[in-house]
Design a protein around this nucleic acid. Structure first.
Length: 110
DNA sequence: ATCCTGACTTGAC
DNA sequence: GGTCAAGCCAGGA
């Protein structure tokens, strides 16, 4: 029996991200108690995309607000499109007012 | 079992 | 203030 705690946690947190808000891999990692494992968050998200789960991975960017994982979507433009549809302005693959739209689970879910 | 890679982050030069 | 390198954990070859 394997314990996908990390992955399941990532799924839960990402699913809890409100519409029009975004967060970073590191924030999720910190919330999970492993800030140094931010990479695993992206890894888990990648697995989530492969699954039939409804994971708004487009609301998750790196700490810089860059759509680093847009290429892992069906189409690279899909991510930006989804973000803009939710009212998030994206410029040059970067989210505007990122810190303003930033959603920290450690704080919001406190 | 070993080595490499990866949607990141932080620290050092 | 920008660039380079290392750390982190898990999974695939």
């Amino acid at each position: 029996m394997k314990e996908y705690t990390f992955f399941e946690n990532v799924y839960a947190v990402v699913k809890l991200i409100p519409e029009g808000r975004i967060t970073s891999y590191g924030a999720i990692a910190v919330y999970l108690g492993a800030k140094r494992s931010a990479r695993m968050v992206g890894w888990a998200l990648n697995a989530s995309l492969n699954d039939n789960l409804n994971i708004p991975a487009h609301r998750v960017t790196n700490r810089n607000g860059l759509l680093t994982g847009k290429k892992y979507f069906s189409t690279p433009k899909k991510m930006q499109e989804l973000l803009e549809k939710e009212g998030i302005n994206v410029q040059n693959d970067r989210v505007e007012k990122f810190k303003d739209l930033f959603w920290d689970p450690s704080i919001e879910l406190l």
